[in-house]
Write a protein that binds this DNA or RNA. Structure first.
Lengths: 321, 321
DNA sequence: AACGACAGGTTAAACGTTTAACCGTCCTTG
DNA sequence: CAAGGACGGTTAAACGTTTAACCTGTCGTT
């Protein structure tokens, strides 16, 4: 090499594998500096078999849920010495499979996966940790959707709501189902479900839903999502209803603009950053010890109270005390 | 190899480099299938010197501007046969430099870069295309901020606004400066700038600004950003002002929730997807031909009219016709 | 019948690392 | 003073590809 020293020695000083004479160290380091040498990570990976890259596959980056998650994942991955290869599945299962295969070819050390759909039989040559969804045989980090549902239920009760409308999300989605049933359990016996309608995660509510909203027979509507909560806000306004005076609404997710709509949405916040951090540390642990027992972790969520849900002040239709 | 054939032959059939007998093809392909063989891209890159990965460095993924951009970049990169290594600089110049160095070690074929700060002298061993900011010596794809400013100016005039407040963004940011001066040019001689205040890109407006907003001496305030526009909406509401009846406001960016606030923000939309697509195709072209002349591309923006800016109906203070 | 061209296959070198094995020197030590 | 470690360095093999060079039949041409 240009430092008048062998290649192996260079390797040893850059990695500190073997001790070297100060003089040699200086020479090597200065030559590196001078030539702008950077080790070739491909060659390194090829030789050692230990890849320093992680994959991340998400259904749709533009979902407001993801940016904070991705950021946390990338940051902690890099702090652990890994590089993150990100792939957007475009909500398409086929494209998702391609992504996973491509990552296999790239010999990633592991992948963080947010599956577009539930259930999929697969065996990939790398460890996987799933986030927010669970796949058999994979480590998992999820938010406690059940707790979220319960939190909402208890809050609704505490605010004095006794007749509640429920806009539940896609029935097939486990997280939405968890939310729903925990909520139902929490209010059971204390409040009445005026009606329940399943809606997609969108601000564009089905016609029948906005019709129902126009003449509410409840004091609160609990929404599957912040997106649908925004739809409710809009429908209420169009119907001349004031939120929260005439109608309270509660969302889920705490999207970045939950505080920007009028009134600010009371909602449940998922610990996105923690989810991301723990996902990659879980993955890291599994990479270090492939034989360790399966790890399922569920992180607490928090209720964030804003102005869209308030106590029922004039008793809705005060029948009995 | 397990197909009773040499390694080289396998390479030839998977890449179609050299013709092979149908029988051999079948044997190889079936062996590949059977063993679940996937080529090692590290080895491939090492040997050919042609990396199939691109880097992406952004200041802060949680900025609502980025998700759509990143998605477009990832998608078109993958369609071109590249894999995307994403890095978040956390708005920190130092971390950004680390990111660029790490990408160099990874021998990426090129990188798409949205610099956290303007101006930086550097020479990296890969081609770079910058997005939304320009760096000397790099290919560039930007939105036409000047056009955006002009669009706003003309729209304001068309709506009949004659006294306008201006909340301009960080002076040091070229894009914000372009917007501002084009806007000023567009309205010059036809409308009066009641006041101008530089503010950071945030919904939390400085105290003095909300004070000024409380007693507006203008019919329209033009904001540096959708974020600050939201701040203005909020301040106006707190001051008992109705938007757009008492005051019109115009933003910039068309963030995902611009249509969710009340009233919907009229603003300028940047062609995020096109920006991303063109960035990687520009990069691709440069990779194919390192000697081609520098390519600077600026993409048109569009005005999206919603309800936060309306014609002045009662002439503001009708002095002369 | 002899030869050349060519198609289809193999061998071996090379990419840039890491690492085990090896080899001098010098210092210590019995 | 001879022998034996440490210590600091070098050599060479190996990782999984690609690719140039090479080999070997087969076939078509004269």
């Amino acid at each position: 090499m240009a430092a008048g020293v062998s290649i192996a020695t260079v390797s040893n000083v850059v990695n500190g594998t073997k001790p070297a004479t100060p003089a040699v160290q200086r020479r090597v380091l200065s030559a590196i500096e001078r030539l702008g040498y950077l080790p070739d990570l491909h060659a390194r990976t090829l030789r050692t078999g230990a890849s320093r890259s992680l994959g991340l596959v998400v259904p749709d980056l533009t979902n407001p849920y993801f940016p904070a998650l991705v950021q946390a994942i990338e940051t902690t991955a890099r702090d652990l010495g890994f590089v993150l290869i990100v792939m957007d599945a475009g909500n398409d299962a086929e494209r998702e499979t391609e992504a996973l295969a491509l990552l296999a070819s790239y010999r990633v050390a592991g992948v963080v996966w947010v599956p577009v759909e539930h259930e999929r039989s697969l065996d990939w040559p790398y460890p996987i940790v799933t986030v927010d969804r669970t796949v058999p045989g994979c480590d998992t980090v999820v938010a406690d959707h059940g707790q979220g549902g319960a939190l909402i239920g208890r809050h609704a009760l505490a605010l004095g709501h006794r007749r509640i409308g429920l806009l539940s999300g896609p029935r097939a989605l486990p997280s939405a189902a968890d939310r729903r049933s925990a909520f139902l359990d929490a209010v059971a016996g204390h409040a009445e479900i005026a009606w329940e309608l399943p809606v997609p995660f969108s601000s564009d509510l089905p016609r029948e839903v906005v019709a129902r909203l126009a003449e509410p027979d409840c004091s609160l509507v609990v929404c599957a999502n912040d997106a649908v909560a925004v739809g409710v806000l809009r429908a209420a306004r169009d119907a001349g209803l004031r939120v929260p005076d005439d109608l309270s609404v509660i969302g889920f997710d705490d999207v970045p603009w939950a505080d920007f709509v009028e009134p600010g949405l009371t909602t449940v916040r998922q610990p996105l950053a923690a989810l991301g951090r723990n996902a990659v540390s879980t993955l890291h642990a599994r990479i270090a010890d492939p034989g360790r027992p399966l790890h399922h972790e569920t992180l607490p969520v928090t209720l964030v109270e804003r102005r869209s849900a308030m106590p029922v002040t004039p008793p809705p239709t005060g029948v009995r005390p």
